[in-house]
Write a protein that binds this DNA or RNA. Structure first.
Lengths: 143, 143
DNA sequence: TCTTAAATATGATTAATATCATGTTTTTAT
DNA sequence: ATAAAAACATGATATTAATCATATTTAAGA
């Protein structure tokens, strides 16, 4: 469903939401170690998220990444969209180009209700929502 | 969610369920054309499904593939399992090894109810169920 | 202003999927 | 028996996703 890249990106973003802020930026190296994703790999993803303004960053000493309060209110789907594109998660289960409610593929009725629900949740739940779950030990992100 | 291979396999199996039987076997060439999947590719998948006894086949003139009545009652998930393995569809949304109800990953609560539902349906709906939907024009498989 | 520490840009490599190709075996019909 | 028609087995190639590497740019602090 999600690419590795999206999974990694999500982990990094949630980690930043919990542990970084403008006065306490996080370096790639530390993020990488704490979320257990190869440094060079997560670096590239962080750079992309930063370029797309969902994360903030500064170069040089004391530099690093963080996510500002406004962006914490972005939906989870935003990250997935930036990294994977919405198409990946939304396209027909059998990859039929013009599958829809009126011309459903054989899997449509089985899959779509569940998937629509899932997508709606990814679009309504924010980064902050999930970060809060982590903070309150309602969810876990083991390394 | 599903690999291309699983999607192709499913299309082929449903096509056979509708259009082939022991007295009217279907050749790779015809299957390939009717479901719009490259011949050499679908051939390999059909051979695998045949080896795993979910499809039947005979060699030589008048040979080809079909699916017997018993196998039409196999769940959709069987095909997916043979081609992709169950793990692919069942593993944690963030690929955390030990994500479960007690130690849920941050996406678990969002994703799992929907996904469990989906998996349950793939395990309960049979090949024949979906073939009937096609027959009754409740679903479509455009090429 | 120089050094150092960080992100950034870019591209190379590796691994996994997807796709293609072909010689071998089996079966049917002549 | 033999020829032809089909699946079968095996492996090669191509494409995409995942991972790694590094030179460049920017900012901080001495």
């Amino acid at each position: 469903m999600l690419s590795n890249s999206s999974k990694y990106a999500l982990k990094a973003v949630l980690f930043l939401a919990l542990h970084a802020n403008e006065n306490n930026k996080m370096m790639v190296k530390d993020i990488s170690e704490r979320i257990n994703v190869p440094k060079a790999y997560i670096a590239k993803l962080l750079q992309e998220l930063s370029k797309r303004r969902i994360l903030s960053s500064t170069k040089g000493p004391k530099g690093g990444f963080y996510i500002n309060e406004a962006n914490k209110n972005q939906p989870i789907m935003k990250i997935i969209d930036i990294i994977d594109g919405k198409k990946r998660i939304e396209s027909c289960a059998l990859s039929l180009e013009d599958c829809n409610e009126h011309i459903p593929c054989p899997l449509h009725a089985l899959i779509n209700p569940s998937r629509s629900k899932m997508i709606a949740l990814l679009e309504s739940k924010t980064i902050n929502d999930l970060a809060m779950d982590l903070k309150l030990n309602k969810a876990f992100l083991p390394v």
